[in-house]
Each structure stands twice: as C-alpha cells, then as structure tokens.
C-alpha cells in the first residue's frame, strides 16, 4: 500500500479508504456543482504525465486542495453533515503533501512542465466564481483519485 510518483514514494495512506470517504459524499457534493460545461482537472492537466513530472504535479495539486479547497469547503462540510469523510480526505491529503514535500524539492529538472499543467488547473479555477470553483474542485476529487490510483501499489 504505497504511492510511487516517479521518484517520490509515499507510504501509510490506504487509497481504498479515500475512495470510500469520497463515494459516501459524492452525490451530495456533485449535486451542488451547476457548471457542467467546465472541468478543472481536464485532460491537458492529467493526461500523459511523464512519471518524472508526477511528483511535482501531485504535490502542487494536493497542496492546493489542502490549503485552499478544503479550507474553503469546510463550512459546507458542516452544513451537509459530511465532516467524517471530509476529515478522512483532508488528513490523508495532508499526510501525502507532508511526505512529498522533501522529495519533490530535490527535483528541479521537471518542475517547469509540471508547473505548467498545474497552472492550467489553477487558471480554470480562478476564472470561476470562488464558491462555485471550490465546489467543483471538491466534486472532481474522483478524477484526482483515479489519476492517483495509477501510481498506487498494493
């Protein structure tokens, strides 16, 4: 049970638990997203990512989720009564970001291209109304988890 994002390894996170946490709230969360014409985590962000870039990209994305998306979504999590799932996802993303922090700092060569992918996501996020963007990003966690699953080894 570990992630291997190119050279970066992360142990101690059980992906199945993250899936279970998201599935428990998926319908409630995605029902709030009325903008169906936009996808933040679109193909250009996550498709055909070379292994060597995967560490930077996932670190940037998860750090954004921890510092922005979860922080902004917390009142809704209370409102919708989904704190348990919220806590599982937030704390495990927090663990992954902390563990990736050291290893991704050592890799400079692939940062620029990974950064470009993250900025595609970030620009799309910024173009939406803040609350709508947070709701959409939270609802797109299944896209993120599916991509992370490719790097997961039982």
């Amino acid at each position: 049970q570990e992630f291997q994002f190119g050279p970066c390894r992360v142990e101690g996170v059980v992906l199945q638990k993250l899936w279970q946490a998201f599935w428990a709230v998926k319908d409630i969360v995605q029902a709030q997203d009325n903008i169906t014409s936009v996808q933040l985590l679109r193909k250009e962000v996550l498709q055909n990512v070379p292994e060597t870039e995967s560490c930077h990209l996932i670190h940037a994305l998860l750090r954004f989720y921890v510092n922005t998306v979860f922080k902004s979504y917390r009142d809704k999590a209370v409102e919708f009564g989904i704190l348990k799932s919220f806590s599982i996802l937030a704390n495990n993303f927090f663990v992954i970001v902390s563990k990736l922090q050291a290893s991704q700092e050592k890799m400079f060569s692939t940062r620029k291209t990974a950064r470009r992918r993250f900025l595609l996501f970030h620009r799309a996020f910024k173009q939406l109304d803040r609350e709508a963007a947070v709701t959409k990003a939270f609802g797109e966690m299944d896209i993120l988890l599916s991509w992370m699953e490719k790097f997961y080894q039982l």
Partner: peptide
C-alpha cells in the same frame, strides 16, 4: 479532531 482540523478549523469537532 485530526491534525487538519486542528490547524485549519479548530472550532470544529467530529
């Protein structure tokens, strides 16, 4: 409260 809640939403307990 997990570490995330303690850091970013300390008034919220589960």
């Amino acid at each position: 409260q997990g570490e995330y809640e303690s850091l970013y939403m300390s008034h919220i307990w589960i």
